[in-house]
Each structure stands twice: as C-alpha cells, then as structure tokens.
C-alpha cells in the first residue's frame, strides 16, 4: 500500500511569552522509511513532532499530508492519518491495558460503539505483537515504565495511521524490548509502507535501523541525510559538545557512535 508524503513548508513556531523559536523548516518525510530526529535536549525534536501531529499550531508555514494542509483536516479525519506516541504520562484515573488500546479506535468509532463500548475483538493481534497479551485486564498504573510505553505504542498501532510519530519510544525499555519495538517499527515502515518519525536519543543504536537522520540544534535542522552521512559528520561533535567514537557493528557493518 502506498501512502502520501508528509512534508512541511516554512514551518515556524514561536513559543508564547518567550523569545525561543523553532524553524523555519522545509522538508519532507519519505513513506516506507524511518526518520530519526537526533539532537541535544532542547534542540526542538519534540516541538517538531507536536507540529507534525497538529497539536501545536505553527506561527507560520504549514504541514501537508499529500496536498492537504493538516490543520485544515477535521480532528477525527486527521487522527486517521497521523498520531503520536508520547513519552510516559501519568494517568488522571486508571484504565486497563485493553481500555487504553481500545482508545485507538476512537477516530473511527460508530455511534453504537460509542454507547456500548464493545470494541474488544480487534486489539488481540496488537497485544500479541507487543507481548502484552497477559496484561489485557491489568491496570495501567500497575505496569512498569516499559510496559506502559508498550501499551501507549499499542494504542497507536490500533489507531493504524499512515504516519506514526514517536517521542523517545525506547526510553524506558530494556534492550530486549527496545529491539522488539524497533523491529515492529521497521515492519510498519518497510513492509506496510508507513511513515515513521521518531525523536531518538541513543546515538549508539540510531544508525542500526534509521533510514534517514535529521540532526537538530536550536530549533533548526543542521543536517538531514542518510545515517552513513550524518553519523560521520564532524557536526555531530559540535552539536552534542562531546568527543565521539565511531565503530562498525560486527554483524551488519552499520555505524555505532559512542560518547567518550
């Protein structure tokens, strides 16, 4: 299945009551590929994700899905195109894992389903894919950080949008689960043709799976290219203010970057 391209034109955001600004930024994200946004804290990675998700309204410029400006699309229709998996959040009140996954169906819910709440059958495959089958009726608050992270990703997978934005999706996961999540995202992009864009902090592993890397600093994109080009660039040291060592992965030969 082929999807439209997500792109932004002259995208700029100025924080209210602040001189801090993001952009202007013009660029596009390729469907069927994973784009990783890297950069130090405060570089603008989360701001870009929130602009792409339509949560922040740009001061100027626009985000487009194909030819349609995202902000011109009605809320529920937009949520069938783009969604964002946030970093862990405290829940106002507790819900079960199944109830949270079912929220992924909200954009396409019928009036009958709204009243009966009967949406259970479709979440089984996602629970299985993320290793959450045993957690179906567990309360979200009782889960570990990693399990909560997988539950939130599960909600986005049930939502099943062509564009998936993720804010540090592996931040709370052990290496095994982190790798499993990356495999899920690779499958979504490379097999199902979706556009996957994620803010990512781990320079050691980003080169192993990302198809494109955007290096960000001070609300600007300093370099957008393939991992092979970005990870060898001396800009990386300048942006992160540290000395880095580059080595090759013993099996894939892809680049691993370590801070010294």
């Amino acid at each position: 299945m082929s999807f439209e391209r997500l792109h932004c034109e002259n995208l700029q955001y100025i924080w209210p009551s602040s001189t801090a600004s993001f952009g202007p930024l013009t660029g596009s994200f390729q469907p069927g590929a994973i784009t990783a946004l890297i950069g130090p804290n405060g570089a603008g990675k989360s701001t870009l994700l929130r602009l792409l998700g339509g949560y922040l309204k740009p001061t100027s410029g626009s985000v487009y899905y194909g030819d349609s400006a995202l902000l011109d699309i009605a809320a529920s229709a937009r949520a069938n195109l783009v969604t964002l998996v946030s970093q862990l959040m405290p829940l106002g009140f507790d819900l079960t894992v199944a109830e949270i996954l079912n929220l992924g169906k909200l954009p396409s819910m019928s009036w009958k389903t709204r009243i009966t709440g009967d949406t259970a059958p479709q979440i089984g495959p996602v629970l299985e894919q993320l290793g959450l089958s045993a957690f179906h009726d567990r309360s979200y608050r009782s889960l570990s950080g990693g399990e909560q992270q997988r539950t939130l990703l599960g909600m986005a997978l049930v939502q099943n949008t062509p564009v998936l934005l993720l804010d540090e999706p592996t931040a709370h996961l052990d290496p095994g689960h982190a790798q499993a999540i990356i495999h899920v995202l690779e499958d979504l992009a490379h097999v199902h043709g979706k556009t996957v864009i994620m803010a990512y902090h781990d320079l050691a592993t980003v080169g192993l799976f990302a198809d494109h890397i955007w290096l960000m600093q001070h609300g600007q994109v300093s370099l957008a290219a393939s991992p092979e080009q970005v990870l060898v660039s001396p800009l990386l040291e300048q942006v992160f203010h540290t000395t880095l060592q580059r080595i090759s992965h013993p099996v894939s030969g892809k680049m691993i970057v370590l801070a010294l």
């Binding site: 929130r50 998700g53 339509g54 949560y55 009605a74 809320a75 529920s76 229709a77 937009r78 949520a79 069938n80 783009v82 969604t83 964002l84 946030s86 959040m89 829940l91 106002g92 009140f93 819900l95 109830e99 949270i100 929220l103 992924g104 909200l106 954009p107 909600m155 939502q159």
Partner: peptide
C-alpha cells in the same frame, strides 16, 4: 476516557 491521558493525547486520538 481519552481525557484521562491528557489533552495532548486526546488531540492525537482525534478529539476536538
């Protein structure tokens, strides 16, 4: 239910 996750997450779930 979506508001339990916060306004931002409710937005991504298609809630105006």
């Amino acid at each position: 239910n979506a508001f339990y996750l916060g306004e931002e997450q409710a937005h991504y779930l298609g809630v105006n």
